[in-house]
Deep mutational scan, measured.
Amino acid sequence: DTINITLPDGKTLTLTVTPEFTVKELAEEIARRLGLSPEDIKDTHNGKTLDPSLTLAEYGITPGSTITLEIK
C-alpha cells in the first residue's frame, strides 16, 4: 500500500507502508530518503501534527492518503 508525502517544495514522494507503521517509522523512512534527520521532520494530516507513537491506522491514514511534510 502506498501513501503520498507532500514535500515543502510541492513535490510528492510516494512511500510503501502498512497501516501498522508508526508515525515515527514513517518519519525515519522519509528522513532516510531525503537525507535528513528524523527529528527534523514534522508530519501533518488534515491540519493536525501527528504523534510519533501512534500508527497510521490510528489516524485513519489509508492507501492513497496524503501527508504533508514540514521541515523543523
Rank of each mutant, 00 (worst) to 15 (best):
T49K: 13
K42R: 11
E58T: 04
A27M: 15
K11W: 12
L34Q: 02
T55A: 04
P38I: 15
V17P: 02
E58Q: 07
T62V: 12
G60I: 02
L26M: 07
L15D: 00
T62G: 14
V23C: 06
D40G: 10
I3W: 02
T22K: 04
R33M: 12
L54M: 14
I71Q: 06
P52T: 13
E39S: 15
Y59S: 12
P52A: 14
T62D: 05
I3F: 03
L26H: 00
T66H: 09
T12C: 09
N4P: 01
I41G: 02
S53Y: 07
D9S: 12
R32S: 08
P38R: 06
A57D: 05
I67L: 12
T68F: 13
I41W: 08
F21N: 05
E20S: 12
Y59V: 15
A31D: 02
P52R: 05
L34A: 05
K48Y: 10
A27W: 15
K11D: 10
L50V: 09
T2G: 06
Y59Q: 15
L26I: 04
T66P: 02
D9C: 11
L13S: 02
T44N: 08
G64L: 03
L7V: 04
A27I: 15
L54T: 07
D1P: 13
N46V: 08
I61V: 07
K48Q: 15
T12I: 12
P63S: 08
F21G: 04
P19V: 05
F21E: 07
I61S: 02
G10A: 02
D40R: 07
I71D: 05
P19C: 04
S53I: 04
D1A: 15
G35T: 03
E20F: 10
A57L: 13
I67P: 01
L15S: 00
K42I: 15
P19I: 06
G35S: 06
E70Q: 09
L7R: 02
P63N: 10
E70S: 07
E29K: 04
K48F: 14
S37N: 13
T18A: 06
G60R: 01
I30S: 00
D40L: 12
I5C: 04
V23D: 00
F21R: 05
T44M: 13
D51C: 06
E58L: 02
L34R: 01
N4T: 11
Y59W: 08
S65F: 06
G60H: 03
I3H: 01
D9Y: 06
S37Q: 12
E58W: 05
V17M: 07
T12E: 06
H45I: 15
P52G: 15
K48D: 13
E28G: 04
G35R: 03
P63Q: 07
T14R: 09
I67M: 06
R33A: 12
D9V: 02
E20Y: 09
V23S: 01
E28F: 07
L50Q: 03
L56W: 02
G64M: 03
S65P: 01
E20D: 13
K24C: 06
T49P: 14
D9G: 13
P8N: 11
L56E: 00
R32K: 12
A31L: 06
L7K: 01
Y59F: 08
L50T: 04
D1K: 07
T2W: 14
T6K: 14
T44S: 13
I61Q: 01
T18L: 05
L13P: 00
D43E: 15
V23N: 01
D51I: 04
E25P: 01
K48P: 09
K11T: 14
T62F: 14
S53L: 10
E58V: 03
T2R: 09
K42D: 10
L69K: 00
T44Q: 11
R33T: 10
E25W: 06
A27Y: 15
T6F: 12
G64R: 00
I67Y: 04
L54A: 14
I30A: 02
T66C: 06
I3S: 01
T22I: 02
T68A: 14
K48S: 13
T6R: 14
A31M: 06
T44D: 09
R32C: 09
L34K: 00
E58K: 03
E58I: 03
L34N: 01
K72A: 13
K72F: 10
D51V: 04
T44P: 13
R33C: 09
K48I: 15
Y59I: 14
K42G: 13
T6V: 15
N4A: 08
E29G: 02
K72I: 13
